[in-house]
Design a protein around this nucleic acid. Structure first.
Length: 872
RNA sequence: GCCCGAAUGGCGGAAUAGGUAGACGCAAGGGACUUAAAAUCCCUCGAAGGCAACUUCGUACCGGUUCGAUUCCGGUUUCGGGCACCA
């Protein structure tokens, strides 16, 4: 054993051992309990970033820990390889997305191996390879035939200069990011997954997910957004509209129908379109509405604008005429594209009504009149359904919410002008993308037969890989050799669909494919899937809390209904990890912009107490501004390259620091001195092990007849095992588990080594340190474990269990409070009765001072913890 | 705008189920070793007062419940994630 800890040598030794022994390749084995541990697969962007390192280290720690609990652990890895960045890189560097992607995968795979991850590479997959996406296409055709996939029109951002569809991300302040042209909304035909057909189940099954964070389940519940309301039908006023017809709206508050004073429709709504025919003003407004972002956040924050169409509709209960407005805040393609407005009880309607001088009619009052009506200030009676009664509502007056709701809906139903309805906020999932680097949609458009799914024996529809997109339109649509084909049904000349699928589709089922990643006769092998699925532990960023996780849950149910798998939910336990953040530094530029400097280029000055005073650039010694702590990103130039850290300190140190600096759910602040501390700790472990091993083999002695000090030492060892085990198993609190091991190391370093018994205890302590550390710092643990005299690898050891006898204490330290304030400590025998504890507390000197001259009202004894004397 | 989170020393964070606020680590200050540096070891380390024992204040802000609140409840502020074509 080398005297100095040399991470490079230690890590290659351990990694070679694992590689030679194929330590992490696993097979279905019915004699062992399976544990499928999965971290969200990465997009092959080029290099690993700290977020990856964190994500995969967390997964690796859990995997290695579960293996030590005796489970058959599968931890696979793959590549979420389709997506926009490859196309952007292609445009910039004139390299084909495929070549760029494969090159990135090669590099990142090397980096993964340097991290010492316990991955089963025999199951590796890349979503851009035909042997993967052919099964996606296969499933697509089955779902298409079932009607789960259908076509309808959807709205996209259209760049009129580049003649291309833009992602929301590519729209900067209403303009195309490359062309700078004002972006327009455009309606194009797209394929949709009917996820709304599963809304009820997706909502209900959240209750089964005990292993998911409550926060994520709440977000999904709100996203699915089940609401109880009614469709309400307003007849057209024929005089103003010009034709007979009906306007349908959905409202969750039909009880406020008597307060409706106008209706608002989206620009794309037939009523608005009709008004535009005769009114240039309306036409102009509709055009204005079309040059806007499709993102909901923009819709909700933009200035609410509207215009009277000159049309009216008839209130179904009162017969009153209500004005029809076209408004930019009403979403087309969501609900009916029209809403009834009740300005007295809806903040947005209230704002709009005030802006355009529309009537405001109050139909609720607070039961105790504590909230007087005031048409200048909006009153939030909506939020308080319990303490309100209807008013100004004719026959519906003086009723609480539910009674008014029921009465009004009943009357609407009787008049055939409305119907009770449960609705979801969730919308069907549009998956057509007018992009090259994605999975081709397996549909053939035949002039005679219509849309025909590609038959199974003609799959996969292979995406040509030697294409370099130029940023305008979809390259596939310019390639006759791709789109020219024959109809599989009638053999006539036909056109292949050139849209590709949303990359979320690939990531919705990859976890199932890992069970039998190389299978070429089906999407999954049923037996393998039954053994491994569902995923026992899924780990990924909180930013995926809604979309990815909801789509994956949806796909799981689709695959179940296809008979491919046997469970209802894909991920039994979910861990959402926080971001990796770092300090930012910048200088103002003459043009008002900020020039960002990497933390590495900056020197921070501290005052005598270590508080940051300011910072200077190393290059010129001139000051830079401190910009606060933000997510590591290219734009803020505050990224730290994990590769540099691995080269400098080794993988174990990086892993240890990442696991120690914060609990996994919280954001993690990168700190150069923090990683220095992690490195120092591992050197201490190595040094103590080296000293111990150099002193020769240990004569194992049974831990009987221990002195008080030895007993205390052994208690420390087993307390560390006890606490670290609890921290890891119950809450994934690796940071406190590591703190336990550090505390143990502090005691072990001071422990005597004179007798065989002393050395035997130290051996026990060092073995415990190794075992507890092995999931986190696997390389150093692997090597020290051998040095401590073991012939079998530590990865196959059992997780240690604390010896209950070693944890027993003879006496306990209790806290004594007077009126809840700490006034002293007492030491009592562990066996002391409540009376003895109380008596001891009451005789404490400092306690006596504080209760002098007062009457003791109550004494609260919390066993093993504290005594509180209530006196006055 | 809507939905979901977070806020504790100079810093990262800790505090089973309402019971000692600051575990563990970093930084800083002091000291030891050394020709020197690195490495290592020892001591101090929330604020204020006090020689000390100890006292008062202190977990973003305002209020409440409780013998006792970082923890529970109501309200506010700031920061972060998501908002359906970034992944």
């Amino acid at each position: 054993m080398h005297e100095q800890y040399q991470p490079g040598a230690v890590e290659s030794q351990a990694q070679e051992f694992w590689a030679q022994n194929k330590s992490f390749e696993v097979k279905e084995d019915s004699s062992k309990e399976p544990f499928y541990c999965l971290s969200m697969f990465p997009y092959p962007s080029g290099r690993l970033h700290m977020g990856h390192v964190r994500n995969y280290t967390i997964g690796d720690v859990i995997s290695r820990y579960q293996r030590m609990l005796g489970k058959n652990v599968m931890q696979p890895m793959g590549w979420d390889a389709f997506g926009m960045p490859a196309e952007n890189a292609a445009i910039q560097n004139k390299v084909a997305p495929a070549a760029w992607t494969y090159q990135n995968i090669d590099y990142m795979k090397k980096q993964f191996n340097q991290l010492g991850l316990a991955l089963d590479w025999s199951r590796e997959l890349a979503t851009c390879k035909p042997d993967y996406y052919r099964w996606e296409q296969w499933l697509f055709t089955r779902l298409y035939q079932k009607g789960i996939i259908y076509q309808k029109k959807g709205t996209v951002n259209w760049d009129p200069v580049d003649n291309t569809v833009l992602a929301n991300e590519q729209v900067i302040e209403g303009r195309g990011w490359r062309s700078g042209a004002l972006v327009e909304k455009r309606e194009i035909p797209m394929y949709y997954f009917k996820i709304t057909a599963y809304a009820e189940e997706l909502l209900a099954d959240l209750d089964k997910l005990d292993g998911w964070p409550e926060q994520v389940k709440t977000m999904q519940r709100n996203w699915i957004g089940k609401s109880f309301g009614a469709d309400i039908v307003f007849d057209y006023d024929k005089d103003s509209v010009g034709i007979d017809g009906q306007l349908k709206v959905y409202s969750t508050r039909p009880d406020t129908l008597m307060g409706a004073t106008y209706v608002a429709v989206a620009a794309e709504h037939p009523l608005a379109q009709r008004a535009a025919e005769s009114s240039p003003e309306v036409a102009a407004f509709i055009k204005e509405c079309q040059t806007a972002s499709t993102a909901e956040a923009d819709m909700a924050t933009m200035e609410k604008k509207g215009l009277a169409t000159g049309q009216f509709v008839i209130h179904p209960l009162t017969g009153e005429k209500l004005a029809v407005y076209v408004a930019n805040y009403v979403l087309w393609g969501y609900g009916e594209g029209a809403v009834m407005a009740v300005p007295a009880h809806d903040e947005r309607d209230f704002e709009f009504a005030n802006q355009y001088g529309l009537p405001i009619k109050q139909v609720y009052r607070s039961t105790d009149d504590s909230l007087p009506f005031n048409d200048k200030e909006w009153q939030d009676w909506y939020a308080d359904k319990d303490n309100v009664l209807t008013v100004n509502s004719g026959t519906y007056d003086n009723q609480p919410f539910q009674a008014a709701f029921d009465a009004i809906v009943a009357d609407l139903e009787a008049k055939a002008h409305g119907k009770r309805k449960t609705q979801f906020r969730l919308r069907d999932w549009g998956i057509s993308r007018q992009r090259y680097w994605g999975c081709p949609i397996p549909i053939i458009h035949c002039p005679g037969c219509g849309d025909v799914p590609v038959p199974e024996d003609q799959l996969p529809v292979v995406l040509p890989e030697n294409v370099i997109p130029d940023g305008s339109g979809n390259p596939l649509a310019k390639m006759p050799e791709f789109y020219e084909c024959q109809c599989p049904k009638c053999g006539a000349d036909a056109r292949r669909e050139t849209d590709t699928m949303d990359t979320f589709v690939e990531s919705s089922w990859y976890y199932a494919r890992y069970a039998s990643a190389k299978l070429d006769t089906g999407l999954v092998d049923k037996q393998a899937a039954d053994y491994w699925l569902p995923v026992n532990q899924y780990i990924g960023g909180i930013e995926h809390a809604i979309l990815h996780l909801l789509y994956a849950r949806f796909f799981h149910k689709l695959m179940r209904d296809e008979g491919l798998i046997g469970s209802d939910e894909p991920f039994t336990n979910l861990l959402t990890q926080g971001m990796v953040v770092a300090d930012t530094f910048y200088r103002m530029q003459p043009n008002g912009g900020r020039l960002w400097f990497n933390p590495e280029e900056v020197e921070v000055e501290l005052d005598a107490k270590g508080k940051a005073l300011g910072a200077t650039l190393k290059a010129d010694g001139q000051p830079v501004q401190i910009g606060g702590t933000e997510k590591m990103s290219k734009s803020k130039n505050n990224g730290v390259d994990p590769q540099v850290m691995i080269d400098q300190y080794g993988a174990d140190t990086c892993r240890l620091f990442m696991m120690f600096a914060a609990p996994p759910e919280m954001s993690l602040e990168w700190s150069d001195s923090g990683i220095e501390g992690a490195s120092r700790f591992l050197r201490r472990v190595w040094r103590l092990a080296h000293k111990h091993v150099s002193a020769g083999p240990v004569n194992r002695v049974a831990p009987d007849n221990l002195s008080a000090e030895q007993k205390e030492l052994r208690r420390g060892i087993h307390a560390a095992i006890e606490h670290a085990s609890r921290d890891i198993s119950q809450h994934h609190k690796f940071n406190t588990a590591i703190a336990q091991v550090m505390t143990l190391m502090n005691t072990l370093e001071k422990a005597p080594t004179e007798t065989d018994l002393d050395r035997s205890l130290l051996q026990e302590g060092l073995e415990s340190v190794c075992l507890l550390l092995s999931p986190i710092a696997p390389h150093i643990s692997h090597v020290i474990w051998q040095q401590l005299g073991h012939n079998t690898p530590i990865i196959d050891e059992q997780w240690p269990v604390a010896d209950a006898a070693a944890l027993v204490q003879d006496s306990l330290q209790l806290v004594v409070q007077v009126n809840g304030k700490l006034r002293g400590h007492i030491e009592v025998p562990a066996s002391a009765s409540r009376e003895e504890v109380e008596a001891s507390a009451r005789s404490n000197e400092n306690v006596l001072r504080h209760i002098e001259g007062q009457t003791i009202r109550k004494v609260i004894v919390v066993p093993g913890k504290l005594v509180n004397i209530v006196a006055n």
